[in-house]
C-alpha cells in the first residue's frame, strides 16, 4: 500500500547540513499496523510527515496504491490528505474554540459534504471512540485521554485508508494510553485500516504487527 524508496531528508543552512533521513526503504502492506521507534531526533516524525505529505523528502519516491504521490500539485496533495489519510498527534491539536463535534467534522469541511451529513458522520465517529455524550464539550473540558479519542474520531471520520499517528500515547498515562491503543488496534483489525505509528513506548509498539527502528536517520531494524 505504502512504498518508500531511498527516502532522504537533508536540512541545510548556510553552514550546516543535517541528514534527518538516510536512504529509507519501507513497504507497508494494506491493513498493517506498523510502529516506528527510535531515540529522540532520529527522524521518526520526519518520516511520518513525509509519508503524510506534510513535508517533502530531499530525495526518493513515495508510492501509495501504486501512485507516485510526491509529484502531486498542492491542491491534489490536499485532496489526497483529506481522502486517504487520517492524522493523530501527540499534542492532540484540537481547536480550542470549537466543541468536540465541530472538531471531529473538520476534515469533512474540505469535502462537499452537507452540514447534516457532517454532523451524522461526526456523531458516528464519536460513538466509535466512546465519546457520544461529549459532543458539546470544549477541549478544555476534557481529559488527555478524551482529547486523544476526539482526535482519533477526527482522524477516522472521513474513512481514510491510512492513519498516521505521531506518538498518540506520548502525553497520556498508561491507562489512557492503553485505551487509545485499544481503539487503534480495533480500527486496524475490524476496519482493515493501515496504521503507521511513531512511538517511544516499547510496550505500545509490541501491540502492533511490525516494528521498525530508526537511528540517526537510518533504519536499523
Amino acid at each position: 500500500m505504502i512504498k518508500l524508496n531511498n527516502i532522504t531528508k537533508v536540512y541545510r543552512t548556510k553552514t550546516i547540513e543535517t541528514t534527518a533521513l538516510n536512504d529509507i526503504d519501507l513497504h507497508v502492506p494494506k491493513g498493517e499496523f506498523l510502529s516506528i521507534m527510535g531515540p529522540s531526533g532520529c527522524g521518526k516524525s520526519t518520516l511520518l510527515n513525509i509519508i503524510g505529505l506534510l513535508d517533502e523528502p530531499s530525495g526518493g519516491t513515495i508510492r501509495v496504491d501504486g501512485q507516485e504521490v510526491i509529484k502531486y500539485a498542492s491542491k491534489a496533495t490536499a485532496k489526497f490528505r483529506n481522502e486517504k489519510l487520517g492524522f493523530i498527534f501527540q499534542s492532540f491539536h484540537l481547536i480550542p474554540d470549537l466543541n468536540v463535534i465541530d472538531n471531529v467534522e473538520l476534515p469533512l469541511l474540505y469535502r462537499n459534504v452537507s452540514r447534516k451529513d457532517r454532523k451524522e458522520m461526526a456523531a458516528i465517529a464519536l460513538e466509535s471512540v466512546g465519546l457520544a455524550n461529549r459532543k458539546s464539550h470544549f477541549p478544555s473540558q476534557l481529559s488527555g485521554g478524551q482529547k486523544q479519542r476526539v482526535a482519533i474520531a477526527r482522524a477516522i471520520v472521513g474513512n481514510p485508508a491510512i492513519i498516521l499517528a505521531d506518538e498518540p500515547t506520548g502525553n497520556l498515562d498508561s491507562v489512557m494510553g492503553d485505551e487509545v491503543m485499544e481503539i487503534l488496534t480495533k480500527l486496524n483489525k475490524e476496519e482493515g485500516t493501515t496504521i503507521v505509528m511513531v512511538t517511544h513506548d516499547e510496550r505500545m509498539a509490541k501491540k502492533t504487527d511490525r516494528l521498525i527502528r530508526l537511528y540517526d536517520g537510518s533504519q536499523v531494524a
Partner: peptide, 9 residues
Amino acid sequence: GLRQALGAN
C-alpha cells in the same frame, strides 16, 4: 498546519 493536514489547500 492542522487544517492543511486535514485537507485544506
